[in-house]
Design a protein around this nucleic acid. Structure first.
Lengths: 207, 207, 207, 207
DNA sequence: TATGAATGAGCTTTCATTCAT
DNA sequence: AATGAATGAAAGCTCATTCAT
């Protein structure tokens, strides 16, 4: 079971190729709608020959899934530290969340695609769940601090959902200029966030 | 320019065939991911021969768009009356909204697809906008009644976005049983809705 | 066997419809390459419904053939009188020939198409042959008058072929402006025509 | 930038496949009218699978164009040496020209098709023009030698056009046996050719 | 290991023609 | 007599995947 140095090297190189391919996939996803991305596109963008891709990913789905997982990990890396700050406010988290996913639109589209149509394998589900869980954990911690009497887990879920909703609903808002739309989304997100920390009548928790 | 009875009949039959095709499209959309639905699928499902489809829709896009528009109209027909009730509460609207889109999952996926990748023509955009506008109008009216001091339009937008977010985020929640997930979504939606009518400290409006 | 007045009327109406369809076909041929013309095009252009066309022509080929025959007849009507003039010169005939077929490009394309790929039925062949024959007769008569010692029939054939050749070879001459090309064709045709009436050395006939 | 032997081999094989496909195309063109030839036909005739054809030619037009260009090059290879002979006579050139294009009827039909309806890209136009130009150059040289006082370029153009005309006009002459028709065409071509070198009255040039 | 080559299955769309009314 | 409706067949082309080298 022990790996020889050569095997280790091979594995490392394999990972490097996989990274390279996911890099290329990302760039392609940024350029055209998800369902129109072909393996040839990725081959062209990566410089890896079409057939060689299949040495690193058993099929198209796996590669796309890998890109999704990586997007999620990047989101995690950006968002978790932000939310970990002791005195952060929901409004600021909300704005950062929107900012990140607007600027990383391909990730957002990818994720939404998988949420809608994707057939995820167990491993991917686990990875995504873990990330989502950690994100929700941070949200929960924040809400626990700010509204200790509420059901923080529920708040975290609602918060996460609401932000996703703002993004999906208004990212393609027709007839408006992009910066304006972006501004609108941030405002909506901040407003929604603010509602979470507003005490009910008599300070009674609501959720 | 007046139409003969025969012409009227013909028109009616044409509409009937179009309906039949959109019906079939819906069923297919329910059965497989949107981007994988082919004209052949719809031909098979409808019993209308592949080439005949083109008698009723000039191309694939038109047919898909028609299905989308119909979904939106159906949503309108169900949701607007509900929200029009004088004394309706956001929580109940939220639940109905979620119920409807869970039960009409193909519509929801379709709409999300078009929101993400879709290239809509101007007419469709107009139709969808009008429906969304009317929905937002109703939401606004409700909020005006319940929280007259807030920015009701903003509330309506946030409400709409948040509900969409609940649906997109949790509709495929893995590892849970469907009725349970459905229940969770409704709870989240209700909670979010409740927040909109909770007065800020001292009754100060927040939005 | 005798025809009733009603039958006669019917026949007349049938002819009228056929004419109408061939009219439309001509217009369509003028607008797009021959192989791209469809029955639907002709239906649209004529106002006659697609299926009704088949009442007047058994199939596409027949209709196209009818258009061809009519083109030939029109050419005959224009060219024969011209060539019948007692004192006409080959150069002028050549120029008129080119002029006519440049201005009636669809006919020319149609004829060439049938010459190349067409499957003509016996009747059409007969009609076309008769017309071509009459044209050649006129050419022959002209040459008999002008060069009585030569083989006039051969001259007529060569003359006809040469003119066709000028048209086919230079009508799409790339990179030149159309009027200029037209001028070039006419010059070539005149030059070729002139050669037919130039006596050989010592007045010896050549052909 | 230097090519490895392997790359050279690959290139050679690619060319070989392209040749194979053009070969097949030619055979198909010989068997049915140009506009009816499909990619599937060529796939069947060549043994190369339909989709593989697109490895060697980006689309149908390219393949057809390649066939056309090859036809033109073959014509060039056969005709130019012939015409280059010092003491060749127009009659013999004419006969060879007719012979070649009768024996290579698919080429002739192809070229005529492109002359009539074809949409050629710039590169193909250039190639064809160069070949036609070289052919005309040879004709011109011949005429310069034989009739130094005439406008040789004009003679060359007229000669070329006239020969094409003979081919197009009589290649499908109905009701005659093929060898007989062929004979007739050659006779016509010779006669026309002879006229070019017959001096005008008093040796005056005509063209 | 890497990849050029190959392909079956599939896609949307068009067409000439038939048929019920 | 006229035509709307219907369709089988075929078109050009793309794609994910496999395989020989």
């Amino acid at each position: 079971m022990k790996k020889t140095p050569l095997e280790k090297l091979r594995e490392k190189e394999k990972k490097a190729r996989q990274k390279l391919l996911v890099d290329a996939a990302e760039r392609v996803f940024a350029a055209k709608p998800f369902p129109k991305v072909s393996m040839r596109d990725i081959s062209g963008e990566s410089g890896v020959s079409l057939s060689s891709i299949y040495r690193y990913f058993p099929d198209q789905e796996s590669l796309f899934l890998a890109a999704l997982v990586r997007g999620a990990k990047k989101a995690e890396k950006v968002l978790i530290p932000l939310v970990e700050k002791e005195d952060i406010l929901p409004e600021d988290v909300a704005e950062a969340f929107v900012d990140f996913l607007v600027e990383n639109d391909p990730y957002f589209r990818m994720m939404t695609h998988f949420m809608l149509d994707g057939v995820l394998n167990e491993e991917s589900i686990l990875i995504l769940n873990r990330i989502e869980g950690r994100l929700l954990d941070q949200f929960e911690k924040m809400f626990k601090r700010l509204t200790p009497l509420e059901n923080s887990r529920m708040q975290a879920h609602a918060f996460f959902a609401a932000l996703n909703g703002v993004l999906i609903t208004y990212r393609n808002y027709p007839g408006r200029e992009i910066p304006h739309v972006h501004q609108h989304m941030k405002q909506l997100a901040r407003n929604l966030a603010a509602m979470f920390v507003r005490p009910g009548p008599g300070g009674k928790p609501v959720l």
